[in-house]
Design a protein around this nucleic acid. Structure first.
Length: 416
DNA sequence: CCCCCCCC
């Protein structure tokens, strides 16, 4: 069946890339020339010593450990609050270089760098020296945004994160003059009015009056194509560190989306029609939707560290257990048992089903989670002790046992 | 201009 085939393919890809995260699908190997650049960049930053691989390896589990206990009841705001959380503050100064050094480790898949990802952007906020260094390269590199080049995109990311995090975005451009390749940009106009191609807007700042905008985002949800009358529609949810917004695409525009969008991949999106979404179709975390139109430019955005967390209205597991069959819930928990992939056939023998079941726990209880069919593609091979965040999981009673089903309407994200 | 989807 096509479904099963698809699963196998993604698993192979996962193995090849040597990484465990669902986002690994978007990763390409950094070319040597970029490693060279990285080396220069890293050695140019004086006040901070580049840590050896062994040191990084040692640090990695610590970092993961610190993040693991985090589950709080205040998840709603957590993705934006995280930037200021004390534990992040605590170790950010010790891994200041890691946004560069962990990039170079991409070609060393044995290194588990996943623990760094969610924290990289925090460091840039606090490290103005690397910040200005990075800016020297940004203005010409951004034009290469479609190049499958992690260095480029990380660089852009580092700069853009500053825009997202510090409300006055202007200071980000102060060092642009150092870059000879940017010479034709150096009119006073572009110095003071940042060119649109050098920044991303925050998703929370979009509204029905936004016209020329550019965002970068993770595709956290993609619907199936639905048909109505002679038309078809596809929609989804885009997320950055600031929030999320729905998008919708009709007919021809939908074709673009179905051929190029994949859940958990990052994109940049420029222009589109923004409207207040029909409340029936809204997410709990956004009012607006972007209608993709012919002028909308969509590009792959390859960044290992841009990994915004999905927002959820988290329910403690002990409150989930008594809920009724079919109810939708948001939960978060740590995987304590992984039963792996199980194939079976449905009532109809031609219906091939694949599922992955694992048990999660939080402070209050434990529950089994089953991901069905294509959703299993989003589950990394190694999930033990990782924290999973689930939005729109479906309560399922079967043989007197409660579990949470993750199927196509469910959004899942591994945090560690 | 659009929303349902169950499966062991």
């Amino acid at each position: 069946m096509p479904r099963a085939k698809k699963t196998i393919k993604t698993n192979q890809r996962r193995k090849k890339s040597g990484r465990n995260q669902p986002s690994s699908q978007s990763i390409t190997v950094t070319p040597d020339s970029d490693l060279l650049f990285l080396t220069c960049l890293v050695s140019n930053i004086r006040h901070t010593r580049q840590r050896t691989k062994a040191e990084r390896r040692r640090q990695s589990p610590d970092t993961r450990h610190q993040k693991n206990h985090v589950p709080t009841n205040n998840d709603h705001a957590r993705s934006t609050e995280q930037r200021k959380s004390p534990e992040v503050e605590h170790f950010s100064s010790t891994i200041t270089i890691s946004s560069q050094s962990s990039q170079s480790s991409l070609s060393h898949p044995e290194l588990d760098q996943s623990a760094f990802h969610s924290n990289l952007h925090n460091e840039v906020d606090r490290n103005k020296s690397s910040h200005s260094l990075i800016n020297q390269r940004t203005s010409h590199e951004i034009s290469n945004i479609t190049r499958p080049n992690l260095t480029t995109n990380e660089t852009i990311h580092n700069q853009q994160q500053n825009i997202e995090s510090n409300s006055p975005a202007i200071d980000t451009f102060t060092n642009v003059n150092d870059d000879p390749s940017a010479s034709n940009r150096q009119t006073s106009i572009t110095t003071y009015f940042a060119p649109i191609d050098e920044q991303f807007q925050r998703i929370v700042d979009l509204n029905e009056h936004s016209t020329n905008f550019r965002i970068r985002s993770k595709i956290i949800y993609l619907s199936n194509v639905r048909h109505f009358g002679s038309n078809k529609v596809i929609d989804g949810i885009l997320s950055d560190a600031s929030g999320e917004i729905k998008f919708v695409a009709f007919n021809d525009q939908g074709e673009r989306v179905t051929t190029s969008f994949k859940v958990n991949e990052n994109i940049t999106l420029e222009n589109g029609e923004i409207a207040i979404a029909n409340p029936r179709y809204r997410t709990p975390f956004s009012r607006f939707e972007i209608r993709i139109c012919p002028s909308t430019v969509i590009r792959i955005y390859q960044s290992n560290s841009f990994n915004p967390l999905i927002q959820i209205n988290r329910k403690p597991l002990h409150e989930v257990l008594p809920m009724s069959h079919g109810a939708l819930v948001d939960v978060e928990g740590t995987v304590i048992l992984d039963r792996g992939l199980i194939s079976s056939t449905g009532h109809d023998a031609t219906n091939h089903i694949i599922r992955r079941t694992f048990k999660i726990t939080d402070d209050t209880s434990t529950i089994n989670v089953t991901a069905w069919n294509e959703k299993t593609d989003e589950i990394p091979e190694n999930i033990m002790n990782k924290t999973i965040r689930i939005r729109n999981g479906k309560i399922n009673y079967y043989n007197d046992y409660v579990s949470i089903n993750a199927s196509s309407q469910t959004i899942i994200q591994f945090i560690d």
